[in-house]
Every structure is written in structure tokens, then in C-alpha cells.
């Protein structure tokens, strides 16, 4: 009985973790809150100041309102701070006037060349990860699950 009670207590109090993810595990609310409009981006791909700047203006989130209640907002901000990158190549250049851009970091540009910010007739927008990374939902960005659009080859990068 004591074991059952302990198990139930753990179920009720521990933060739920969401499934298998190559960069995870992610807290369940990170996936449900940040992964409903776009892929739940790996927190390791921006720096702590970038994530902080982003979380400060969720009501003006790249042109849409992504506001959260105080409690989930604080938990997600904490998770992002703890897992942020410390490398220069992941600097998203957040400033007081500009939101950080994961798709403008030195690392992203090296990997993705000149993918446009908004979709064209032949290329997806840089932030539309799943257009090419068909298993991005699970954090799998390997070549094996990659479907490059016609007209975007390594040579063009």
C-alpha cells in the first residue's frame, strides 16, 4: 500500500516528461505549449539571453499572440534557461528591438545556406522544419529522414 501511495504521489507531483526526443526529454508542457504552432525547437539551439528575450514578449511572438499563464510560462522559461547553448554559433542576436532568430544563427546558416525567411514557390521558409526534416517532431534531424526540396541542393548553399 505504501508503494502504491508513493507511486501515486510521484505521478501527481513530478513534471510529466514527453516521450522520446533526440534533444530531450522535454517537459510535457514545453511540447504542448511551444509545439502546437511549430516544432518544439531544441532549447540547445539558442543562447540563454535569446530565450529570455523571447519569453518576455510572448504576446507579440513573431506576429502572433502566444501568451501563457504565469505558471507554465515560468516553468518553460526555467527549462529553456537550463538547457540553452553557451556557444557563440548559437547566438540568435536578440536585442531590445529585435526578437532572436534561431534561423539566423551562424550554426543554422552553415547548415541551411540561404533558405528564405518566407516560403517561395520552390523553397519552404527556414522555420518550417518539418517541410524537409520529416521526423523533426521527435527531434530527429538526421540525413536519413531528410527530404530536400527539388531545387535546393548542397551545391547551392
Amino acid at each position: 500500500m505504501k508503494t502504491l501511495l508513493t507511486a501515486l504521489l510521484v505521478a501527481a507531483s513530478a513534471p510529466a516528461l514527453a516521450g522520446d526526443h533526440a534533444y530531450g526529454p522535454f517537459p510535457a508542457n514545453y511540447v504542448s505549449e511551444c509545439g502546437s504552432c511549430h516544432v518544439a525547437f531544441p532549447p540547445q539551439l539558442l543562447t540563454a539571453p535569446d530565450w529570455q528575450a523571447m519569453m518576455n514578449v510572448l504576446d507579440k511572438h513573431y506576429g502572433v499572440d502566444a501568451s501563457l499563464e504565469a505558471k507554465p510560462r515560468a516553468a518553460i522559461a526555467d527549462f529553456l534557461q537550463k538547457n540553452a547553448s553557451r556557444r557563440q554559433k548559437h547566438d540568435g542576436h536578440a536585442s531590445t528591438v529585435q526578437a532572436p532568430r534561431l534561423t539566423q544563427t551562424a550554426w543554422f546558416r552553415k547548415e541551411h545556406g540561404n533558405l528564405p525567411a518566407t516560403a517561395t514557390t520552390t523553397l519552404p521558409a527556414a522555420a518550417q522544419c518539418e517541410s524537409c526534416h520529416t521526423a523533426a517532431e521527435r527531434g530527429d534531424y538526421n540525413e536519413s529522414s531528410l527530404k530536400r526540396p527539388a531545387g535546393f541542393s548542397r551545391k547551392e548553399r
Binding site: 502546437s36 504552432c37 511549430h38 516544432v39 506576429g63 519552404p124 521558409a125 518550417q128 517541410s131
Partner: peptide, 8 residues
């Protein structure tokens, strides 16, 4: 549907 910005 499809999210008009992200296409998700």
C-alpha cells in the same frame, strides 16, 4: 487546417 505562418 494549416497554421498560416508555420504550415504546421
Amino acid at each position: 487546417g494549416t497554421h498560416t505562418v508555420t504550415k504546421k
